[in-house]
Design a protein around this nucleic acid. Structure first.
Length: 348
DNA sequence: CAATCGCTTCACT
DNA sequence: CTAACGAGTGAAGCGATTG
């Protein structure tokens, strides 16, 4: 099995550089909050000029501005990136291989038994096409499994191409920190460190049962990866499981009245997204974060599949009203799920 | 007892 | 180097419920 993994370099920031060429080369970051509240949000992506100063994804924007006060900032414009993503995916699909899109800017192609030499040639070709047609940089990883292909891709960033085959996988994994394995975030890392595991080599020497006890089935998967075994597969039709919108409020709310405009808007947005994807939903939920940062989610199933935003709004209202404790609400979210494929509808 | 539901946790960007 | 910080989106995991 030969898997080609492609991931765009600093995607959101690169998209912004397309329409703001003057940002290029200067420290620049895309964040979650709008310009006026930029210090309250987090950094979603930064360009490499900003990374030199230690500014990276997930970092609080306030920290980023401390590191580099003249940082150029823009709020994430998901619709714009989505449009570029669609063109990217069309390019990738055009080769006719089984493909799994993993995020707005990442996908894996199953090249079956293609020899690595040919895969590398194809990878270069794809990179060049993206560069030419979208004017964006990307990185390609090639390996015998999707996880290793992604890791090769990560290691080759930016603007790189790296192939790792069965013969050099152990060498490739050696000494790498555990969080370089996709799916290991702060929590899993903490748990592994509690077992004295910091690197992939150490993971490979660990006791499988201990890993299972700490991380469940994922623990076993990790052990195999550390041994150079990648059992994952490219799955073409990954279905949407939920669509949501959430927003941190300017000032905490204590009554539904203060929430109704934003819930109205989010109800329209999620049902519009569902419509665009040709999905009918059978479940509506809300998320509330109170001022003390505790968070709850509440869900209500419908008796039928729906596409109506009014229905989303009505149920969200009910769920909200049932959860107005005295505490102020600092974030509110709306979500729909339990989808069924309906008729696809285009909207203008 | 498996499928589904509701909710929380986690990993990204 | 790590932790703290703290927005938005979506999937995974898990215990409870139900047919």
């Amino acid at each position: 099995m030969t898997i080609l993994y492609i991931d765009m370099d600093y995607f959101y920031a690169a998209c912004e550089e397309l329409r703001h060429p003057d940002y290029k080369g200067k420290p620049f970051a895309v964040g979650s909050a709008d310009e006026a509240n930029k210090l309250k949000g987090v950094i979603q992506t930064s360009n490499y000029a900003a990374r030199k100063y230690g500014i990276k994804s997930g970092m609080p924007a306030a920290m980023a501005f401390k590191l580099y006060p003249n940082l150029i900032y823009a709020k994430a414009d998901e619709d714009y990136y989505e449009g570029i993503s669609k063109k990217l995916m069309d390019i990738l699909k055009s080769y006719g291989f089984k493909m799994q899109q993993n995020s707005i800017d990442e996908a894996a192609l199953d090249l079956k038994e293609m020899p690595y030499e040919d895969a590398e040639k194809l990878g270069k070709e794809i990179k060049e096409r993206i560069e030419k047609e979208l004017m964006l940089p990307s990185t390609v990883g090639i390996s015998f499994g999707p996880v290793f292909a992604k890791m090769a891709c990560d290691a080759a960033k930016p603007d790189g191409l790296l192939a790792v085959d069965e013969r050099n996988i152990m060498e490739f994994l050696k000494g790498k920190p555990i969080e370089s394995i996709p799916g290991i975030g702060p929590r899993a890392r903490e748990r592994l460190e509690a077992l004295g595991i910091k690197t992939i080599d150490e993971l490979g020497k660990a006791n499988v049962q201990t890993l299972k006890d700490s991380l469940g089935i994922f623990g076993e998967e990790l052990y195999l990866l550390a041994e150079g075994v990648d059992r994952s597969k490219v799955e073409e039709d990954t279905k949407t499981l939920s669509i949501s919108r959430e927003k941190t409020l300017e000032k905490a709310a204590t009554s539904f009245d203060e929430l109704k405009d934003i819930i109205n808007e989010m109800s329209r947005q999620v049902s519009e997204d569902a419509k665009a994807k040709g999905l009918l939903f059978k479940s509506v939920g809300i998320k509330i974060r109170y001022e003390d940062f505790t968070q709850i989610t509440r869900n209500a199933g419908l008796s039928h599949y729906s596409s109506s935003w009014q229905e989303v709004y009505e149920i969200a209202e009910k769920l909200c009203n049932a959860n107005l404790s005295g505490k102020g609400i600092s974030k509110i979210g709306v979500r729909i799920s339990s989808f069924m494929e309906g008729s696809k509808q285009k909207r203008l």
